[in-house]
Design a protein around this nucleic acid. Sequence first.
RNA 1: CGGGAAGUGGCGCAGCCUGGUAGCGCACCUGCUUUGGGAGCAGGGGGUCGUGGGUUCAAAUCCCGCCUUCCCGACCA
Length: 570
Amino acid sequence: MRWSDSFIPTLREAPAEADAASHRLLVRAGFIRQLHSGHYSLLPLGLRVHAKVADIVRSEMDAIGAQEFLLPAMHPADLWRRSGRWDLVGAEMFRLQDRNDADVVLGMTHEEVFAFLAAEMSSYRELPQIWYQIQTKFRDEPRPRSGLLRVREFMMKDSYSFDLDEAGLDAAFDAHWEAYLRIFERLDLNVMAVQASSGAMGGDASVEFMVASPVGEDDVARCTACGYRANTERARAEVPPIDDPPSLDAPERFPTPGVRTIDELAEFPGGAPADRQIKTMVMVLDGELSLAILRGDHQLNTQKLTDSSGAAEIRPATPEETMAQLGANPGSLGAVGVSGIPIFADEALRGRRAMTTGANDDDWHLRGVDVERDIADLRWMDLREVAAGEPCIECGEPLEIVRCIEAGHIFKLGRRYSEAMGVSVLDADGQARTPIMGSYGIGVGRAMAAVAETHHDDKGLCWPVSIAPFDAVVAILDPSDEAQARTGEALYRELCDRGVECICDDRPLRPGVKLADTELVGIPFRVTVGARSLAQGNVELTERATGDTTLLAVEQAAAETAAQVAAQRS
RNA sequence: CGGGAAGUGGCGCAGCCUGGUAGCGCACCUGCUUUGGGAGCAGGGGGUCGUGGGUUCAAAUCCCGCCUUCCCGACCA
């Protein structure tokens, strides 16, 4: 391909709204353009990279025996009603009506459709199956952001396993885990496999593949000593015990005029340090007002509350709701004496005595509260979010918190969808059995953005050969010079013949512009054909990642370049 | 949904406070010169100033509504 014939609109400056490095550079280098918020066009260079990422995913999926499908992006609402997700999902799903006023949806994932197809199986002999597709998903995200990292329309590889029993599911799960590690290795993405929340769809094992990056949207707790790694939606830490003083026989009310926060109560004469207070969060779980109580200096992780309560929808209560049910405003709330309202208690409060908490009366608090004695019907669970430096739950060494991009997610789904879609096979004993499913996803565009995010410098992108839009560029510095043009063309043809994906920069531009462009676009190897070296019968081979340049005799240049490209293929 | 910022040519921005009919850099087109790190000179093309309404002799500029985009948070199979 010739650069002069290509549509590669590079920009000297990034659009003002682009903030993340991948966003800025993918736009500047002419890979993507925004159509509107959360929807991007892939330009020719962008599509080349996207397709290579997809091909790597495809080849590793095929290698574990998965079969590729292509399912509709638009689904009948009925299918989603059968699984219960029509009501469960809410505003995140694009919904529309066809000309007959029938409800249809744009698929945000494909459990329903694959399970619908799986209903055609009738014998255990047909299992196991792993099915996948690389398809556009639609999600009406509340806040698309950071270019390709979070969008409303995107390609995802989603696969689903069907097995007769848990042992089969375990095998499919492990096969995916291994395949994912190979995929990210080939993408040159440094991923951490971390324990994760399964979200509202349930399931037990759930592992996310995370790429550390400040523009990510998830926090991972990581122990550098023992390798414990978990999303903070699920991470746990050791909580050192606190010596409580002897308690009172019963809680005691005391006035706290103007005190509204944990910190203020800690400063207040007669108050208590934060770790000796009970924090009371008022939440609405599936429409029901509930309390979540934690140690004063601990933060509630709402995903943990969602997961352990089983609620589908969760939100903070409004001050009005709180006043109506508890009779006080935030700042003076407590769980003592509360009845008829579910109370979720964080494990760190177990056994605590002589605590201080709100009295459900503005400007009053209680001291001398024994958690288990004074608060009725506690539901104990892990609710607190771990903080950096806390001792690892496995080995006690300090945890660190790392911001990450979620590049992949695998989890064991269970039988929810197979049951809903009536998937049933007869086992060897002639008994009807519902296959168990697993669900596994990788966002193609997000993976591409994650690579861009981790492979760039101040000059531009820096693709690994495995997914670079081209392996090499032949830069003819002055195409009007016949010797340069002839040599460049010949090298370009020979590189193509040798199987190197090559673009020939034959544009009649100043050398500086062309060199800067090849660096911005991030092509791994550049063969520079210019008067200076050519006078000695040489060209230059420059590796983008290192900037290392070597002089090569014209006759050997193509072979040497092809060899270096081949050495970095994966 | 809460908080913040911003919409002026393809991109980056100025002009707005103090109203007078739109400007700069880059990019683009033509010509000449130039050719190893984003060239020089000369000439040229391109903008409903997000949108609707209001005030005014006159609105990019002042007032009101709406739309859109970005950032932080909430949310996120």
